[in-house]
Amino acid sequence: MITNRRLRVVCLLAAVAIGIGLAAVAPVSATASGESVSTANDTFPVTLTDATGTAVTVESRPENVTTTNPSAAQTMWTLGAADQVVGVTQYASYLDGAEKRDNVSAAGLGVSIERVVATEPDLVLAPNATSVETVRTLRAANLTVYHFPAATDFEAVATKTQTIGRLTDNTAAAAETNAWMWRNVAATESELNDVDRPRVLYPLLGGYAVGDNTFINQIITTAGGANVAASEFDGYKQINYEVVLKLDPEILIVTDQTQGQILASTPYSQTSAGRNNRTASLSVQYLNQPAPRSVVYATGNLSAQLHPDAAANVTTTPGADGDDGPATDVSAPGFGVVVAVLSLVAVVASARFYHGR
């Protein structure tokens, strides 16, 4: 059955293919839902209501933007607006040139108020993992802060991208980026429409797992998997020994943060995935950060591991900055597990940070 959203995406795919071809991306008038928007950048001031219910006004094009979580930084880079960014957290260090921006991370979790203030930002982009208390403190320091809601699906990622584009005077790039994202999602869905879906589980450290109503759940389903935890809970919750065994995943998703710490541990070692040594390995920054590049790369890379024959027909076009995405690391029966030498404390902290984005 074709859903309304899929029908809209397929229509968008056809329109873009006819107008400009799939090999390149040109600015288009489209949002995530297919509604028309102007590709010309908008005038200022701009006033939008954020997740705290606050009407946030940006008086003029912000030349100095500070991001308090890596998903916002990744989005700015994908929009080709990295030159506007003056502050990022340590978790955005994978972005090209991020080391030239001020690091606003605190010594522990979260961001340093003093460091954010020191960047003298015209606008602070604060994804939902940034606490409301931090947002209030930054506003008390006379900073303009936009706080985003949790991104629970691809539609929310597209809306977030559009909002960042509007606030930072990159509306055309946001429309272009969303069209690129949806085109790749549609291409993957069309190739995997009739595949048998393996039972997949994405375990996090501390006994947590990824459930329904998360953008990661949509990555799994779009890539041709069935997220076994989706029937148990929404969001990110701890999952006990008995439930893991009952769900019996065939494939476990691991990342560079969890590789070597999941497959051989109890109870995962006693599942079908553990007994058959089956994992899908993804880069954590492209799986756990709700941003367009993450959606395209994580979905494409996961589908290539779950369904290599079908996914071979899907061509993932580059993002706005020409980045083709990370390499995949496919694991199958008999494939050895690479042990990641990481500090458990640091990994747990990172995992907690990425859960909320």
Results as ranks from 00 to 15, higher is better:
residue 186 A to P: 12
residue 145 V to T: 14
residue 153 D to T: 03
residue 202 Y to V: 11
residue 232 E to L: 05
residue 172 A to H: 01
residue 150 A to I: 14
residue 227 N to G: 06
residue 143 L to T: 15
residue 161 T to F: 00
residue 162 Q to Y: 05
residue 201 L to H: 08
residue 205 L to Q: 14
residue 149 P to Q: 10
residue 186 A to K: 05
residue 193 N to A: 00
residue 173 A to W: 13
residue 172 A to L: 00
residue 186 A to W: 04
residue 145 V to C: 09
residue 161 T to Q: 04
residue 178 N to Q: 07
residue 206 G to D: 15
residue 238 Q to F: 05
residue 156 A to F: 02
residue 191 E to C: 10
residue 204 L to E: 12
residue 180 W to V: 01
residue 169 D to I: 02
residue 174 A to F: 01
residue 214 T to D: 08
residue 228 V to P: 02
residue 198 P to C: 00
residue 221 T to W: 10
residue 167 L to G: 02
residue 147 H to D: 07
residue 176 E to I: 06
residue 199 R to L: 14
residue 202 Y to L: 11
residue 162 Q to A: 02
residue 149 P to F: 00
residue 233 F to T: 09
residue 155 E to T: 06
residue 176 E to L: 14
residue 237 K to M: 13
residue 225 G to T: 04
residue 149 P to W: 00
residue 185 V to C: 06
residue 163 T to N: 01
residue 191 E to S: 15
residue 156 A to H: 12
residue 158 A to Y: 03
residue 240 N to Q: 13
residue 171 T to H: 10
residue 175 A to S: 08
residue 163 T to E: 02
residue 148 F to V: 11
residue 183 R to Q: 15
residue 212 D to V: 03
residue 163 T to D: 01
residue 177 T to Q: 14
residue 167 L to R: 03
residue 164 I to W: 08
residue 181 M to G: 05
residue 151 A to I: 01
residue 230 A to Q: 06
residue 211 G to S: 12
residue 206 G to V: 08
residue 167 L to V: 06
residue 181 M to W: 02
residue 188 T to L: 00
residue 185 V to P: 02
residue 154 F to G: 02
residue 167 L to A: 03
residue 210 V to M: 15
residue 145 V to Y: 08
residue 198 P to R: 00
residue 153 D to E: 14
residue 237 K to L: 11
residue 192 L to T: 04
residue 149 P to T: 01
residue 241 Y to M: 09
residue 170 N to I: 11
residue 149 P to Y: 01
residue 174 A to T: 06
residue 160 K to H: 12
residue 156 A to C: 09
residue 187 A to F: 04
residue 159 T to A: 15
residue 154 F to W: 05
residue 168 T to C: 15
residue 213 N to Y: 07
residue 163 T to K: 02
residue 170 N to T: 09
residue 164 I to F: 06
residue 162 Q to G: 10
residue 218 Q to P: 01
residue 230 A to I: 06
residue 161 T to P: 03
residue 220 I to L: 13
residue 163 T to L: 11
residue 224 G to C: 12
residue 225 G to Y: 06
residue 161 T to D: 00
residue 148 F to C: 07
residue 144 T to K: 15
residue 200 V to Q: 10
residue 201 L to V: 04
residue 207 G to E: 11
residue 146 Y to W: 13
residue 174 A to L: 01
residue 179 A to Q: 07
residue 238 Q to V: 09
residue 225 G to D: 04
residue 147 H to Y: 11
residue 166 R to M: 13
residue 232 E to G: 07
residue 217 N to E: 09
residue 223 A to N: 10
residue 239 I to T: 03
residue 164 I to R: 04
residue 228 V to Y: 04
residue 146 Y to V: 12
residue 203 P to C: 08
residue 157 V to W: 08
residue 156 A to I: 09
residue 201 L to C: 05
residue 230 A to S: 06
